[in-house]
Amino acid sequence: MRRKQIVQPSDPAAVAAMMVMRLYVAGGAPNSVQAIANLEAICQQHLKGHYQLEIVDVFEQPLRALADGVIVTPSLTKLSPLPAAQIVGNLSDRSKVLLALGLQGKTP
């Protein structure tokens, strides 16, 4: 599984504000499936398409995951805007995920 979801708004300011994330998952394992669903729900509600999400299956690309410092999956990395952040687990703790992504307190 390697999937990219990219929404490219026409407004340059919106492009600059785009959040870039990478989610490492373990195939169809339950927490991985849960993490994808939780993250997609958060993105839909809070980022309204202004995000770029790459999903990397560690069974297909373990060396890439290791090179990126991933130890366990699911693991979400926020690459931009800075500061970068990493969240481990199935992303069911919504407030923790929003805090890590810098989205807490922002109205959807």
Partner: peptide
């Protein structure tokens, strides 16, 4: 809440 762990020695998940 996690499914897999990466092993740097073997390069496997």
């Amino acid at each position: 809440k996690v499914d897999a762990i990466l092993d740097p020695a073997s390069g496997r998940a």
